[in-house]
C-alpha cells in the first residue's frame, strides 16, 4: 500500500542498472497517479506540507498510500522524523 506515491531519495542498493530501473519505475508510477488523479495528488501535497509545518520530517522519506474501508477512502502518509525527535 505504501508504494503508491513513494518519494525516497535516500541511499539505493544495487548496480546502476537496478538503481535506474527502480527510479524510473517510481517516477512512472507517480506520474500515472498525478495524471489520472490530479485532485488526489494535490491533496497529498498539501498533506505533506501540513505535516512538515509541524514536524521535522526527514526529506528523503515520505510515502503515501490509499486504504479503502467500505465507502470510505483514506489517504495515508508515512514519514520519517529526523533522528532525536
Amino acid at each position: 500500500m505504501f508504494d503508491l506515491f513513494r518519494n525516497n531519495r535516500g541511499h539505493r542498493r544495487g548496480n546502476p542498472r537496478q538503481v535506474a530501473r527502480e527510479r524510473v519505475q517510481t517516477a512512472i508510477r507517480r506520474d500515472r497517479v498525478e495524471v489520472s488523479a490530479p485532485q488526489l495528488t494535490a491533496l497529498r501535497d498539501s498533506m505533506l506540507f501540513t505535516i512538515r509545518e509541524h514536524l521535522p520530517v526527514a526529506p528523503e522519506f515520505a510515502e503515501f498510500g490509499i486504504q479503502r474501508d467500505g465507502d470510505d477512502l483514506f489517504l495515508i502518509s508515512r514519514v520519517r522524523l529526523h533522528q532525536g525527535h
Binding site: 548496480n15 546502476p16 542498472r17 535506474a20 530501473r21
Partner: peptide, 11 residues
C-alpha cells in the same frame, strides 16, 4: 548492459 550499468531492452 553486460556490466550492469545500463538497463536492457527487457527492462
Amino acid at each position: 548492459v553486460r556490466r550492469g550499468d545500463m538497463m536492457d531492452a527487457s527492462d
